[in-house]
């Protein structure tokens, strides 16, 4: 019996080590250097010009920067929590559409956004997800919302209630 337990232990440890070593390629946050990161949902809200609930519409397009793909997806705004954005927003995201399959026209998202720029003060007409493209996108799931990008370094709680997100925006 002791031997069985030992074998089970060795198998479990080996399985753990395998999952550690073969975890799938992480998103860009694994290799980017973030300028900084919001410490909590209040800071994420305060650092965003616009907070909305919105639904993807139409096909995404791809723009490349130094051969790296960025997906641009139109969203139709259904609720405005902060700022006074137009009815549709072109949101820029890291990666190709294949990398962003968790963005679906069947779902609604809470989006924390800032104007995307290449030149300071000159808007491109696109929007960037606050928190380095990672922290500020939640999928609406009933009364709560689930952050869809999984940066282990993010201090923003993965699941939050819609009222608590709304309250953190203030106003």
């Amino acid at each position: 019996m002791k031997r069985l337990i030992l074998i089970a232990g060795v198998v479990a440890v080996t399985a753990f080590m395998l999952t550690w070593f073969v975890r799938p390629p992480a998103d860009d946050t694994a290799t980017g250097s973030r300028v900084s990161a919001p410490k909590d949902i209040e800071a994420l809200s305060a650092g965003s010009a616009v907070v909305v609930i919105a639904r993807p519409q139409g096909e995404p397009r791809v723009e490349t920067v130094f051969n790296s793909p960025f997906m641009v997806q139109e969203f139709a705004v259904t609720e405005r929590w902060k700022g006074d954005p137009p009815a549709t927003l072109a949101v820029r995201m890291e990666g190709s559409p294949a990398d962003n399959k968790d963005v679906s026209p069947q779902r609604e998202y809470v989006l924390y956004l800032n104007p995307f720029e290449f030149e300071r003060g000159v808007s491109t007409g696109q929007w960037w997800i606050s928190g380095a493209g990672v922290d500020g996108i939640f999928v609406v799931d009933g009364d709560s919302a689930l952050r869809i990008r999984h940066d282990p370094a993010s201090p923003i709680k993965e699941r939050q209630s819609i009222p608590s997100l709304r309250a953190a925006v203030g106003g």
Binding site: D28, R34, F66, G131, G133
Partner: peptide
């Protein structure tokens, strides 16, 4: 220039 992505560095 990668734009205002909140990343000041990338490895590719």
């Amino acid at each position: 220039n990668w734009g205002s992505t909140e990343h000041d560095g990338y490895m590719r």
